[in-house]
């Protein structure tokens, strides 16, 4: 019943979809990680000015579907002179959307480093900059790896939505194969497996990174409050 020859015959479409999903996700996630860092840093550096705008941005990301954001960029963009190709709209959409979540993750990491650790450093005359780079960041780094991994996985799964704005990603090409061959299970399951592979790779990578950071400290500090819930 499961006809694997279909997959072999359509391998080019599948590989093309895989490549598009991978590079768009990669750039989108990179944008999300860095923009999130900028937002969190602004908020940390000058809470009085940036707390409120950044909090609003985070609420927007949490409250609006990614699909709407993609449609705004791809279909709405041209009316304000912003014409993006579908793939670029995908990268920008994933980046803007993920940035809100990452800003929160970074902030949570900063907040969970006990204040006393910083006071102890300040009392020894260690400068605020060194307190940040030597005490705060190393400690928060390992706290934010698990929720960040989680968020990257969510973004990869949500990236399937770019097929709706006509990017030839895994999901779109799988649907094309379904329409060509009238076989449903094979293409969709094959593509599901590929998504799962990407996700597994990210999870493994996150786990390895966490362990590497943990080598500097045998057991993790329990993060305050659970990680945000994963979905996609």
């Amino acid at each position: 019943m499961f006809d694997i020859t279909i997959l072999w015959e359509t391998r080019e479409l599948i590989l093309q979809g895989l490549w598009n999903t991978v590079w768009i996700c990669f750039l989108g996630c990179l944008l999300a990680l860095s923009l999130g860092l900028v937002l969190a840093a602004l908020r940390l550096a000058n809470p009085r000015i940036f707390s409120y705008p950044v909090a609003c941005y985070v609420e927007l990301c949490r409250g609006i579907p990614l699909l709407i954001l993609l449609f705004l960029l791809y279909y709405g963009g041209p009316s304000i002179g912003l014409t993006l190709s579908a793939s670029v709209a995908g990268v920008v959409g994933i980046g803007l959307y993920g940035a809100g979540y990452f800003a929160e993750i970074y902030r949570g990491g900063f907040k969970s480093v006990p204040k006393g650790h910083l006071e102890a450093a300040r009392m020894l005359g260690i400068s605020p900059w060194h307190v940040l780079t030597r005490i705060q960041i190393p400690q928060m780094a390992r706290l934010i790896v698990p929720p960040s991994t989680n968020q990257l996985i969510i973004l990869v799964k949500e990236s399937a939505l770019i097929s709706i704005i006509s990017v030839d990603d895994l999901t779109k090409n799988a649907t094309s194969i379904v329409n060509q061959t009238f076989q449903v299970i094979e293409p969709y399951l094959a593509v599901a497996l590929l998504y799962w592979l990407i996700i597994e790779l990210i999870a493994r990578g996150g786990y390895a990174l966490e362990k590497r950071l943990a080598n500097r400290q045998p057991r993790p500090i329990e993060p305050r409050g659970g990680t945000r819930h994963a979905h996609g």
Binding site: P114, G116, H117, E119, A120, M123, P138, Q139, R142, R216
Partner: peptide
């Protein structure tokens, strides 16, 4: 120099 109730050694 200061010593705190909860030590505040850096865990890493």
């Amino acid at each position: 120099g200061m010593v705190f109730q909860h030590f505040h050694l850096w865990p890493h």
